[in-house]
Design a protein around this nucleic acid. Structure first.
Length: 900
DNA sequence: CATCCGACACCGT
DNA sequence: ACGGTGTCGGATG
């Protein structure tokens, strides 16, 4: 069934609205078969046993509720894990006046009068298998406009070579004004529709020669209160002011082509523009580095909601429902909302601020409508009402000058849109002041958030209620430039060199909210809550007397931009230490916990620090050999065939084993040349050329590489076992139940994509393969996005393992042989395939299970019942061992320090 | 010397 | 375009 047919169906449903049949009619409208619906009605498809509830597998969870309980109910239902087991795509509640729905997959929410549901028919299209229908078209207008603006921008820059002499500020303001005019003429901010474009077209030369003088003059007119003496075609333009047209700038020169494009821009329908998204897109126009992605770093609305809702919106909504019948309290709530400050210290073109603004305005509308309803029932009058929410409650800080201009502009546009909505929704009494002349703007400052004192941007006054939010830049320690490193030094003073750039925002934010009625939540790379970053970053933040109030565990960054940023993110909410509930969001589920630690799990605050030696009595783990040779000393089968045609090469060829080679069963080789053989080896042309290539590569490389240029016939490191070696891939899929490890003989050279234990007894292999260890490394190890990242310092050297006797070791050895035997039964399968969770052979699974039991018996006799229990036990053991260890090591350490 | 990391990188479909 | 899944080299301790 196509979308337009569905729309017709939904319209028909509304026209013949039938309370009893509503939910079934709705499903029918989306093409769910009659028989399914009959069985659903009869009850054998309805998985819910509660009266008034319909739970339809993978489709929806529906509930009819009393007025006033809507929000609470949907909130409860969306975290009802029993129902969510059946994967309902939507949760729907209604009192048959209003309908609330939530898309569990995307997190999008719908709030509509039930008789207007046809206007939102697209929301439920996933039922009809039309997944991204709504999304695909979502930003069509924004994109079209952005592309046109990009064209205009390009031509203006080419024609005005000196345009960047002032750093581009003049041009930024110019573009911002132009955008305002396009928007204003299409949304009745200007008195006559299309008057900007029409006037420009009629009163400028076709060759573009006087377009800039026209615009200069028009901008002056827009900044003048009394234009009665102006020429007739300018007279009609209103006074805009608001700072937007205050300063005199010089418009760039136009060509014939440029004039044509500006007219084409004007002919687009700008009323469709979403200020929240458009700003980010248009920002990409002036930032060529982002051009191809067209706003790839803007935060999508669902993701912004993930920040805003737990930070303040949910609580305000609860207040509203709590005082649903109490006009006095409702008025109080409006006054509270009108005082809230929202501050984004990395606001870009303002999309968090705009969404926050819109959401607060919508809540105000809802409250006012309710107040009216109550007063109406009491036959009380209701005077005209204006919004109390002001743009000046919104604060932003942004480094990029153009983005900061866009943020100011977009907030005005959002205000205009919300004023319209306000008047529409509260049709009899909601009033809005004229948008012109523009009054106060958002408090958006241009500057470096790491350097500036945030209280200068967003002052803290007594009785203020402040929410800090945003999506600050992420940059791993090795990707920061010199200036950013200096920023980090400025913020942290010391031990800043390995921190992610985003941590500066958390740190400054924590200091800002400390002891004040303020909270914060940022979207951040998930890296800062994994691996070494946790113990480097969080102790100093959580020392600021703040706690993690809520958190979203890792989800993949997506928006509708073309080139999505490749990163996985978390959301971390910080607040002053309190007794309030703490929530962890995992996908669409909510989890109430007693504490949220820096790994964003519900355990106690624990920090696992890197160690260079094992905590337990287990052999040393080494890194594989890093080649650092640009790939010139290594080759695969196809190349090998050619190389060995010269039999002299055979002497210098060795097998290599890296992560991918191990997991995907790939043969790979390298030249392995001892110093004393070098003279002979370079007589072979193939080898000689490769060594030269390595030298060139290293000479052009970084500091370390350059020091290695003189031994370009060798890898950077040259470690080998005497007999055998265990290899563990440094990076591997998180989908497997066990992190695969391999046993290789000494003919193999390990690569730095594996960790190795040289000449280890089999029980070490068993220990690495155990569920205990796998649980540990998933909890405390680093990740690549969500991939498992095995490192000796975090996973192996920190692992608490009891001292075991020879008999126990022998026991474990047997289980290890069992596993190796099982693996050998499937020579056609790669290790990666063998450990694919869906395809793991039964025998192998059983062998692993037996090993797990043997390993766990080393810890205690009572078997472990769950992974949670295993982890809890391990953390306790870890603390015990660390305490014992520090007691023993203390004297040594002090001496060492003195020696320095 | 010895790393853990990446607003990633790349492959296969 | 997108899900699936791991390289490689270096600034830093």
């Amino acid at each position: 069934m196509n979308a337009s047919q569905i729309e017709k169906n939904v319209i028909a449903l509304v026209e013949n609205f039938n309370k009893e049949e509503f939910v079934f009619d709705l499903l029918k409208a989306y093409g769910i078969s009659k028989t399914s619906i009959t069985r659903l009605k009869k009850g054998d498809f309805n998985l819910s046993k509660i009266d008034g509830e319909v739970l339809y597998k993978s489709k929806m969870l529906f509930k009819e509720v009393e007025s006033g309980a809507l929000l609470n109910t949907i909130d409860e239902l969306t975290k009802d894990t029993d129902s969510l087991k059946h994967n309902p795509r939507f949760v729907i509640v209604t009192d048959y006046k209003t309908l609330l729905a939530k898309d569990i997959r995307t997190g999008l929410a719908l709030d509509t009068p039930i008789l207007e549901i046809h206007k939102h028919f697209g929301f439920f299209l996933p039922w009809a298998g039309q997944e991204k229908y709504a999304q695909k078209n979502e930003n069509y207008a924004d994109r079209k406009a952005s592309y046109k603006m990009a064209k205009l921008y390009d031509i203006l820059v080419t024609e005005n070579p000196n345009i960047y002499d002032d750093g581009g500020h003049n041009l930024n303001i110019f573009l911002s004004r132009l955008l305002f005019c396009f928007f204003a003429e299409d949304t009745d901010i200007f008195p006559i529709e299309g008057m900007f474009t029409d006037t420009l077209e009629q009163h400028t030369q076709k060759d573009g020669s006087d377009t800039h003088t026209f615009l200069d003059r028009l901008f002056k007119v827009l900044n003048t209160k009394d234009n009665s003496k102006e020429a007739a075609h300018f007279k009609e333009f209103p006074y805009v002011n608001g700072g937007l047209f205050r300063d005199t700038i010089v418009s760039p020169k136009f060509t014939k082509e440029a004039r044509k494009i500006i007219v084409e821009c004007g002919d687009l329908d700008w009323s469709e523009i979403n200020p929240d998204i458009f700003g980010s897109m248009i920002q990409a126009v002036v930032n060529p580095a982002y051009r191809s992605g067209l706003g790839m770093h803007y935060t999508s609305v669902p993701n912004i909601m993930k920040v805003i809702e737990p930070l303040f919106l949910n609580e305000l909504n609860e207040e509203f429902e709590k005082h649903f019948n109490d006009v006095k309290k409702l008025n109080k709530l409006i006054n509270r909302i009108a005082k809230i400050k929202v501050f984004d210290p990395a606001c870009g073109s303002g999309n968090f601020l705009i969404i926050a603004y819109k959401q607060l305005r919508r809540l105000e509308i809802k409250i006012l409508a309710r107040i009216y309803e109550v007063n109406h029932q009491l036959n009380l009058g209701f005077p005209d009402v204006y919004t109390k929410i002001k743009l000046s409650q919104f604060y932003g800080l942004e480094l990029d000058d153009f983005a900061h201009e866009m943020a100011i502009l977009s907030l005005w546009l959002a205000e205009h849109q919300m004023n319209k909505e306000f008047v529409n929704e509260l049709h009899d009494y909601g009033k809005a002041e004229d948008i012109l002349p523009l009054k106060e703007a958002g408090n958006i400052t241009q500057g470096n958030a790491t350097r500036l004192n945030w209280e200068d941007t967003c002052p803290k006054n007594e009785d203020d209620e402040i929410y800090i939010l945003g999506n600050p830049p992420y940059l791993g320690s090795r990707n920061q430039d010199k200036e950013q490193k200096e920023d980090m030094k400025f913020v942290f003073l010391k031990d800043y060199k390995s921190l992610d750039y985003v941590s500066a925002w958390f740190y400054k934010g924590a200091k800002y909210i400390q002891g004040f009625n303020a909270q914060l939540a940022f979207v951040s790379t998930n890296s800062i809550c994994q691996g070494e970053q946790v113990s480097l970053t969080w102790p100093r933040i959580l020392n600021e007397k703040v706690e993690i109030g809520f958190a979203h565990q890792t989800f993949k960054w997506t928006n509708n931009a073309k080139g999505n940023a490749g990163v996985s993110v978390v959301i971390v909410g910080l607040r002053n230490i309190s007794n309030k509930q703490r929530l962890i969001y995992i996908d669409s589920h909510k989890l109430k916990v007693l504490n949220i630690n820096a790994y964003l799990t519900g355990g106690p605050n624990i920090f696992i620090f890197k160690r260079s030696r094992p905590l337990s009595n287990i052999p040393k783990m080494s890194y594989g050999n890093m080649p650092l040779e640009g790939g010139f000393l290594r080759f695969r089968d196809d190349e090998k065939d050619k190389i060995v045609k010269d039999v002299r090469t055979l002497k210098y060829i060795r097998n290599v084993i890296g992560g991918e080679e191990f997991l995907k069963n790939i043969n790979r080789y390298c030249f392995w040349i001892d110093d004393e053989d070098l003279e002979d080896a370079i007589k072979i042309p193939e080898i000689n050329v490769r060594i030269k290539n390595v030298r060139e590569f290293r000479e052009n490389g970084g500091e370390v590489a350059r020091t290695l240029a003189n031994r370009s016939h060798q890898f950077r490191y040259r470690n080998e076992p005497s007999n055998n070696q265990i290899v563990i891939p440094c990076t591997s899929s998180e989908g497997r139940e066990y992190l695969p490890c391999g046993y290789y003989d000494s003919s193999y050279i390990s690569l730095n994509s594996v960790q190795t234990v040289y000449d280890a007894e089999p029980w070490v292999f068993g220990l690495l393969y155990s569920k205990m260890h796998n649980n540990w490394l998933s909890a405390v190890g680093g990740k690549l996005e969500s991939r498992i990242r095995y490192s000796s310092a975090l996973c192996y050297n920190t692992f608490p393992f009891p001292d075991i006797n020879e008999k126990q070791k022998e026991q474990i050895n047997l289980h290890v042989f069992e596993i190796l035997e099982e693996r050998e039964k499937h020579p056609e399968k790669t290790i990666g395939d063998l450990y694919n969770p869906d395809k793991m052979p039964k025998g192998l699974k059983e062998a692993h299970h037996q090993l797990d039991l043997a390993i766990e018996r080393c810890y205690r006799l009572k078997p472990f019942e769950s992974d949670t229990e295993r982890l809890e036990y391990l953390f306790k053991e870890y603390e015990k061992m660390i305490n014992k260890n520090t007691l023993l090591e203390k004297p040594k350490r002090t001496r060492k320090k003195k020696a320095k």
